[in-house]
């Protein structure tokens, strides 16, 4: 949660749009399915990043720009910090997996410029079978923290550089997979009885994360059986959740 704040003069939404003499926003009507005025930031991105901006299109009035997975952090940083664009508001981070599993999995960033009252969708395609990794934008937007954790939990996408990437909606030891992937059945991989017995095994009293135990520097003070329980509960991924022996 140590995102650097962008240069930001006036907290009045629409100030830059008014200064540029553009009309007030109105309810959009009769939007074309495809085509229409493109968000001017895309042209600036092409100029700045060249081939890293793969392609763009306008669908139902919103501009989508596809960028190279390696360049996405730089692209978002440029969009946020350049005062000519000032995309200072991160709306959402999510992912889309298509039913046709040969299609690449898409990571989607919705960013918004409050001064310009513009909206832009940035997409990164991760080819089927490749490692699901993109750069984290938590250093740019504090809002990205939980959104990236949720994306990791639900899709298994690793956000490199996220300070605390662990499951957020499912519990830490959930081992059925990532629920929103298309190969995950609607009712889960295990039978209902197995799901329930696994869920009931979660120890509510020992259910502190290692971070929390290190808060109070309490791990070494716990009784031996509780230590064992915690170790066993986190034995699924020892690398990610290694218990500090000194409790720090």
């Amino acid at each position: 949660m140590t995102a650097s704040l962008p240069p930001y003069e006036s907290p009045v939404p629409g100030s830059a749009r008014e200064a540029a003499g553009l009309p007030d926003p109105v309810t959009p009507r009769y939007i074309a399915h495809q085509g229409g005025p493109e968000n001017p930031s895309v042209a600036a991105l092409r100029e700045r990043f060249g081939v890293a901006v793969l392609r763009s299109h306008v669908m139902w009035g919103d501009t989508t720009v596809f960028v190279d997975p390696k360049a996405v952090h730089d692209v978002i940083r440029f969009l946020r910090d350049d005062t000519a664009h000032a995309y200072n508001y991160l709306v959402d981070i999510t992912a889309v997996e298509y039913r046709d599993t040969d299609q690449p999995l898409e990571v989607v960033w919705h960013v918004r410029s409050l001064p310009w009252q513009r909206f832009l969708r940035i997409k990164v395609e991760l080819a089927a079978g490749s490692a699901l990794e993109v750069a984290s934008v938590t250093d740019l937007y504090a809002a990205a923290d939980w959104l990236e954790r949720e994306c990791y939990d639900m899709f298994g996408i690793t956000f490199n550089g996220h300070p605390d990437l662990r499951r957020i909606l499912m519990w830490d030891t959930y081992n059925e997979g990532h629920p929103l992937r298309k190969d995950f059945p609607l009712r889960g991989r295990f039978s209902r009885a197995e799901q329930l017995s696994q869920a009931l095994k979660i120890d509510t009293s020992g259910g502190y994360s290692t971070t929390e135990l290190s808060i109070a520097e309490a791990f070494n003070d716990l009784p031996e059986d509780m230590k064992q329980r915690l170790r066993a509960a986190r034995a699924v991924d020892p690398a990610a959740l290694a218990l500090p022996e000194d409790g720090r």
Binding site: M170, Q195, L196, Q198, A199, K201, I202, D203, T204
Partner: peptide, 10 residues
């Protein structure tokens, strides 16, 4: 939800 099940039982 399953995550709440042990809490309810407790």
């Amino acid at each position: 939800p399953f995550k709440l099940a042990p809490v309810l039982r407790r």
